[in-house]
Design a protein around this nucleic acid. Structure first.
Lengths: 119, 119
DNA sequence: CTTGACCTTGGACCGTACTCCACTGTTTAG
DNA sequence: CTAAACAGTGGAGTACGGTCCAAGGTCAAG
């Protein structure tokens, strides 16, 4: 799969994918003519990248996950540990969101929400 | 309250607060000598800013909320609408997180999570 | 009346994550 | 064979969110 098709399927530009390659988020083989060649699973990986990113993980963090996955490709334990760690992060974020939600909900319908709180 | 104390209480640097003033996130009166003077509620506002920020809202979005609050300081309905909107955003984000969490949890303990998904 | 802590401004700089551009090479369709 | 559509490179530029610094003003304590 060449970069154009990958870009279309992953919903990003070629430039973004080249940038991701530069920072180690994706790796492509090269065809004899120099064109990048990606396996089809890269689409799923890039979708995962987008998701993780919108949830607040930096590209560096995401790349690290990818690397660890590459380093321990057959150690189910290492992977489980990695994902459990991510789950804790996600849980913490969800708790924060729930708190904010409650805070917001509590103010709905009251007379003077946050009014005094914005210098 | 001068900038140094505000910075200490809000857990950020003076430079950050000056930057926030520049982009309209906070407004300070000036003392006769030119020093900024903030009301004590600014501390709460800055804490709110930090929270909203870690939850993925940009400074521009947060500033817009603050502005709308300033424009309709006595319209309970407008405020309620604003917060309800925020709550929807938060709910959407939480749903995304829950999906990611499930995805991660499903892979824990399985033999080959994501392995094929990182070109 | 000086020292030190605090404040002011403007502007340079940084890291992250792209985005665009010019110029060039390759492949494909008519 | 040519034109369009695709690919490559390097480098500049952008937006966001700060962070640091130099040069200087203000103020309370000794």
């Amino acid at each position: 799969m060449r970069i154009g098709e990958l870009a279309a399927q992953a919903g990003m530009t070629r430039d973004t994918i080249r940038f991701y390659e530069k920072v180690g988020l994706v790796q492509g083989r090269r065809l004899p003519n120099g064109y990048r060649d990606f396996p089809p699973e890269t689409v799923a990986w890039l979708h995962y990248v987008r998701t993780a990113q919108t949830l607040g993980f930096s590209l560096a963090e995401i790349a690290r996950t990818g690397e660890e996955l590459r380093e321990h490709p057959d150690t189910a334990e290492a992977l489980s540990a990695l994902f459990e760690e991510k789950i804790h992060v996600v849980d913490a974020r969800m708790a924060e969101l729930a708190a904010l939600r409650d805070e917001l909900a509590a103010r709905v319908g009251t007379g003077c929400p946050l009014r005094a709180a914005q210098g």
